[in-house]
Write a protein that binds this DNA or RNA. Sequence first.
DNA 1: TTGTAGGCGTTATCAA
DNA 2: TTGATAACGCCTACAA
Lengths: 316, 316
Amino acid sequence: MVTLSDVAKEANVSKMTVSRVINHPEQVTDELRALVEQAMETLEYHPNSIAQALVNNRTNVVKFVILEDIDITEPYYVNLLFGFAQGLAKKQYALQLITDPEEIKKGQSDGYLITGARNSDYDWLDKLEKPFVLFGENHRGYDFIDTDNQAGEKIATEYALSRLYKRIIFIGLDVKEPFEYSREAGYINTLQKNQMIPQIYRIGNHSHEAQELIKKHFKEFKKDTCFICASDRIAIGVIRQLQTEDARIPDDFGVIGFDGVFLDQVSNPKLTTVKQSIFKMGDLLADMLLQKIAQSGSPQGEVLITPELIRRKTTR
Amino acid sequence: MVTLSDVAKEANVSKMTVSRVINHPEQVTDELRALVEQAMETLEYHPNSIAQALVNNRTNVVKFVILEDIDITEPYYVNLLFGFAQGLAKKQYALQLITDPEEIKKGQSDGYLITGARNSDYDWLDKLEKPFVLFGENHRGYDFIDTDNQAGEKIATEYALSRLYKRIIFIGLDVKEPFEYSREAGYINTLQKNQMIPQIYRIGNHSHEAQELIKKHFKEFKKDTCFICASDRIAIGVIRQLQTEDARIPDDFGVIGFDGVFLDQVSNPKLTTVKQSIFKMGDLLADMLLQKIAQSGSPQGEVLITPELIRRKTTR
DNA sequence: TTGTAGGCGTTATCAA
DNA sequence: TTGATAACGCCTACAA
C-alpha cells in the first residue's frame, strides 16, 4: 500500500506537505505542489480513507433508512437507492441499509437519508444526533428533496383536459401527508381554473382497493371520464376493473398514474403516468447529505423536482 | 465518545485487558473479564470500527457488484441486496453498490459480492485481489450460493404432471449459462422418468418475446398443456397471449413461472411459480463473504438452496 | 495473565 | 511556506 510517507520520500518533502497538497493546495508553492503531484502519479497514490476517517472522527458511512413498512421488493425505492449510492461513490462513502427502526442508532455512521417519514416520526427525528436529510415533502423545516407533487398533478390534469375528457376524477390515497395534499391541490386548482368541480375518492395504496372502488361506482361513471390516480398501483387496479367492465380504454375512459417506476411498464395497456426522476433525486440527496455532513449539520433547504408526463396507451 | 481508555480507567485495568476481553476473552481471568464487561455496560462502550479497520488494514466495506446490464428497477436484485445488507449489518459492515464495472477496482473495500457473472467474466475475476463470492452457479470453482435450479424445475414439472396436464413444454432462456442448463435438466430428467418427450423453446427474458412465441405456435398447442417457464417474466408473457387467444387458464393450459419475486404477484391471475429465497441467499452470501475475508480468502464452497413451489391460480 | 511500547495512515497544531 | 510532533482509537509484539 502506498502511503503519504512513500509519496513524501519520492518527492523529498515532509508528509505534511503531501497532506497539504491534497487538502489545502493553496498553502503550498506551485513548485512543490507540482513535485508532489508528480510523485503521487508515479506511485499511484490514493489516500487511505479509513485513516482519514479516524483522524476526522468520521466513518465514511451513512445510513439509508426506509421507514415505510413496505414489501422490500417495491421497485420504487430501488431507484432512489441506486441514485443515492452513485452520489455516495463520488466521495468514497458507503451505506448501510436500514429497514428496522431499532437499527437506526446502532453502530456508526455520519448521517442518515430517511425515506417514508410521516408526521408521527418527527418526535424522534428531532432527537437524532447526526445530520439527516429526508426524501419527501415536510413542513417541519427539515431539509428534503421531493417530486413537485402539485406540479405533477397539474400537468396530468391539464393533459386530461386537453384530450377532451369531460369529467376528471381524482383517486387519491387516504393518508394525511403533505405529498397527498400537494397532489390533490394540483388537481383541484387546475379544475377550478377551468370552472369544473373536483371529485375525489381516497383509498389505500393497493390495486385491489382501486378495483373495488371502480366496481362499486362503475355505473355512476359516464363515458369521457379520465381518472387521475395518485399512484401507478392504483392506476393498475383501475385499468383492471375497467377492463372487467368491458369499458374502452382510452376511448371512453382515460387513466393516468403517478410514479413511473416499473409498474407502469408491466401494465397492459401501458400506462400514461407522471414519472418521477427517482434516481436523480437519490443522487441529489447524496450530495445534500454529504454537504450537510461536511458543514457539520448546517441547513441545506428544500428541493422540488418537476416530474414529467409520459404519454402512453391509457389516454387518447 | 467512549473509548478503550475510558473503559480501562473505569475498570482499573490497562487498555490491553479491555481489548483482550473483546477479541480474546479466553486470555483474561474471569474476575477481570467480569469487571471489564461491567465497565463496558455502564459506559455503553462500543468499539470504534474505524480504528479497528485502520489497525487491521480493513475497510469494513464490501462491494455489491451487479454485472448484468439490467434495468435497475428489476425487483429481483433488491431482495438479494436487502438480505445481503442484513447479513452485513450483523458485523458492522457497510456496502457500496456497483453497476459500472469500471468502478469495481476504484476505492477501497475488503471484498466483493458479484452477481450476474457470465463465463466471459471469469478472466478478470481471476485477477481480483480481494476475496469475492458469487451469486449464481458456476463450474469454475468459485465460491457461490444459488438456488437449486435443477430441483426447482423438477418440483415444477412433477407438480404439472400431478395436476394431470398431458403435455409439458419448457420455455427457457437462450443463454449458455449453468443456471439454464440446470433448469432444463430438472425438466428433462423428470419427463424422461415418466417416459415423456421433452419439448423446449428458448427465448430472451422478455414478456413480449414469450407473447410472440405463444402467438406463433398457438395452433400447435393442444389442450391440457402446461408451460414451465424459466422466469416469471416469460410466464407473464405466456399468460397474456393465452388470454388474448381466449384460452382457458388453468383448465386447459397451465403456466408455472420461476423466481417468485414481485412479478408473480402483479400477474393476473396470480402466478404459480417456483419461488427462490433470494433474501435468505443474500444473508447467507454476506456470512460467506465475511467469513472468507476473516479467513483471508480461504475457499468457502458451494451452497444450493432448494426453492419452493407456490401454488396459485395458473395451474389447476 | 497482565501491562508497556509502538505503530497503523492521516491531519491539526505549533514552531521554524 | 514548510516541517516536527502529537493525536485519533485500536491492536500486535514483547516484556514483566
